[in-house]
């Protein structure tokens, strides 16, 4: 009788230990992937904002997000920058959730996270052929890539 209870106890505690190990592993994995959330959000924004742009232009759009995170004038997190009210048309009209990012957009987001910045530290980008507010033209334009201009 006591031996079966013991065995059950042993089996029970083994199962418990295994579950605990698995849970810890899951939690740690989640931690290690902390930046994956940023990468996915960035890729979505790139897909929505820079669709049909050359690859350099896609990386530059992602870089603008990261430069904003580094700037004191903008929110200090990737999600804060992307969801800043009125900052991006594709966020305001929900386009970023309707389009799943292409492989190119994902790889552009990763390149930008690795520090590749073809916009050279720019904080703004816009399409000059579309109506934009006048004040934005007062920024110094650093470079033009595809249909977008990038400015500090």
């Amino acid at each position: 009788m006591s031996s079966t209870t013991k065995r059950m106890l042993i089996v029970g505690s083994t199962v418990f230990a295994l579950v605990a190990v698995v849970m810890v592993a899951v939690v740690l994995r989640g931690d290690a992937q902390g930046r994956a959330g940023d990468a996915n959000l960035l890729a979505r924004l790139v897909a929505a904002e820079a669709d049909g742009e050359p690859y350099q232009g896609m990386v530059a759009v992602a870089s603008v997000m990261l430069n904003r995170v580094e700037s004191a004038k903008f929110p200090n997190t990737v999600s804060g920058v992307i969801f800043q009210p009125g900052a991006f048309e594709s966020v305001s009209n929900g386009l970023i959730w309707r389009r799943s990012p292409s492989r190119q957009a994902v790889s552009a987001a990763r390149d930008a996270l690795n520090g590749y910045d073809p916009s050279y530290g720019c904080l703004f980008f816009w399409n000059p052929s579309k109506p934009v507010s006048g004040w934005i033209w007062s920024r110094t334009i650093a470079v033009r890539i595809g249909k977008h201009v990038f400015a500090r």
Binding site: A72, K73, F74, P75, G80, Q84, G86, A87
Partner: peptide
């Protein structure tokens, strides 16, 4: 963070945010 989540043009908030 709270300032930047308000729906006001960035132009108006930039300096305060900085």
């Amino acid at each position: 963070a709270n300032l930047n989540s308000l729906p006001v043009t960035h132009k108006v908030l930039a300096k305060t945010s900085a």
